[in-house]
């Protein structure tokens, strides 16, 4: 039983990664196929930047943004649940809730006048938007630690920091990881749109294809970014399940 579940879990992670890897291998060699499908296109294969480089750039942007988002979200979440920062909790929560109603496109568009075109506004938008799920889940997770557990830790003479580090954070790790996963997935999607403001990501073939009426570019970019999103989700999901199981 557990072995079957384990195999199932491995497949759930390996399948999207395998799809991504095979796409990265096949797509650069797929020019003839796209030519056969869409003979009217003079350039049936996106070659301005290699697909591997685009994927790496996309992944780098998402990774950096998620690291920042986790640092800020976790820090604010911890701060707002400490006795000294408790009065900030309603305000922080309001920011997280109202912030979620801001569409990612809007956050991206606001970042452009501040930072100009390119990767910088995309990164800012990814961080700002990525903080919200981490923050929300950190607060939810820390609030859900049973009071009895906290009292037990206090009774055992744990200091504030030791209680946070050894009791509260481990118990809240599942929800926090769910927030990190959501943050990363939203970032993968927003980074795709970021190519519309000049960031080089897997969205670049899509946007260039849409502008230049080149369906082949669009399909190539969309397939890769779809596979990347599913891979990121699968890997982070596996980590989350492992944490929740303890």
């Amino acid at each position: 039983m557990t072995k079957a579940r384990h195999t199932h879990g491995v497949i759930r992670v390996a399948a999207p990664l395998a799809v991504l890897a095979s796409l990265l291998f096949v797509l650069p060699r797929s020019g003839p196929w796209f030519h056969a499908w869409l003979p009217e296109l003079s350039h049936p294969l996106y070659t301005r930047t290699s697909f591997g480089a685009l994927t790496l750039a996309h992944l780098a942007l998402v990774t950096i943004a998620t690291l920042f988002a986790v640092a800020i979200g976790l820090g604010l979440g911890i701060l707002a649940t400490r006795p000294s920062g408790r009065s900030l909790l309603p305000t922080v929560r309001a920011v997280a809730v109202i912030g979620q109603t801001f569409p990612p496109v809007a956050v991206l568009a606001i970042a452009v006048p501040l930072l100009g075109f390119g990767a910088a506004p995309t990164l800012l938008a990814l961080v700002l938007y990525g903080v919200l799920p981490v923050l929300g889940q950190t607060i939810a997770g820390l609030e859900h630690v049973p009071a009895a557990t906290l009292h037990a830790a206090d009774g055992m003479g744990y200091g504030r920091w030791r209680r946070l580090r050894e009791v509260e954070l481990p118990l809240a790790a599942g929800p926090i990881m769910a927030g990190v996963r959501l943050s990363a997935i939203v970032s993968v999607g927003t980074a795709t749109i970021g190519s519309a403001v000049g960031a080089t990501t897997l969205g670049s073939p899509i946007v260039e294809g849409l502008v230049g009426n080149n369906t082949a570019y669009v399909v190539q970019g969309a397939l890769l970014v779809g596979a990347l999103a599913l891979s990121v989700d699968a890997v982070l999901g596996a980590i989350e399940r492992r944490i929740r199981r303890g």
């Binding site: 899509i206 369906t215 399909v219 969309a222 397939l223 779809g226 999103a229 989700d233």
Partner: peptide
């Protein structure tokens, strides 16, 4: 849930064909 993970721009683009 699987569809939810696919970036919006990619899904929009893939539906054109």
């Amino acid at each position: 849930a699987f569809l939810q993970t696919v970036p919006s721009l990619a899904l929009f683009a893939l539906l054109i064909g």
